[in-house]
């Protein structure tokens, strides 16, 4: 089992939703702003994350399992350790964390970041097989590299046809050499 690939970690938690509150939670999650305005954007170690309400289990086996209550699945692909990440989650999005997980049984509140992190880690399900295509790169590395790519592309277009000394001068200025 491994939640780790390079420096990347897989976080997977299932928390039981209080009976009758799944619909309200779903409406809240679906109403959250998306993209750069998502509350998860405040967690700078998050590559990808999702909340999913699991309200049924597969029915194909004989004698299939039936959920006694729906579950809130929270998964995240993060840089570094899960414990410090979850503390940051409680600190950086206290209002959203409080609203979301207060729909779940046993939620200790988000004010005590340590207690919140321990509670969510108690609901963590270890990953069996984690595949990461750029496991050594942090979110910062990825963003910096994409920005460097854009910058070099602009530089190449802007300096076409210049003589070598001028291009070198421009490079030193543009890339702060």
């Amino acid at each position: 089992m491994s939640d780790r690939s390079g420096q990347a970690r897989a976080l997977t938690s299932f928390t039981p939703i209080v009976s009758g509150r799944a619909g309200e939670l779903r409406a809240y999650l679906r109403g959250l702003p998306r993209g750069p305005a998502s509350p998860l954007a405040r967690l700078l170690r998050t590559h990808f994350a999702r909340w999913v309400i699991i309200d049924r289990l597969p029915t194909d086996p004989p004698d299939p399992d039936r959920l006694e209550q729906p579950y809130l699945l929270f998964t995240s692909c993060i840089d570094g350790e899960a414990d410090s990440y979850l503390r940051e989650l409680a600190e950086q999005l206290p209002g959203e964390a409080e609203t979301i997980w207060s729909h779940c049984r046993g939620f200790p509140g988000a004010r005590d970041a340590g207690a919140f992190a321990r509670w969510l880690l108690d609901h963590h399900v270890p990953t069996s097989f984690f595949v990461a295509n750029y496991p050594k790169a942090t979110v910062h590395d990825v963003r910096q590299s994409l920005a460097a790519h854009e910058q070099l592309l602009r530089f190449a277009l802007d300096t076409q046809g210049l003589d070598a000394p001028t291009r070198l001068e421009r490079f030193r200025t543009a890339f702060r050499v």
């Binding site: 999650l29 993209g35 998050t46 990808f48 999702r50 295509n133 750029y134 590299s145 994409l146």
Partner: peptide, 20 residues
């Protein structure tokens, strides 16, 4: 998903590997 987040939603894996 009820809420899905990506830190770099416009970047494909190929773009990221190339940029790194």
């Amino acid at each position: 998903a009820d809420h899905f987040y990506s830190a770099y939603p416009e970047a494909s894996v190929t773009m990221i590997l190339g940029a790194l």
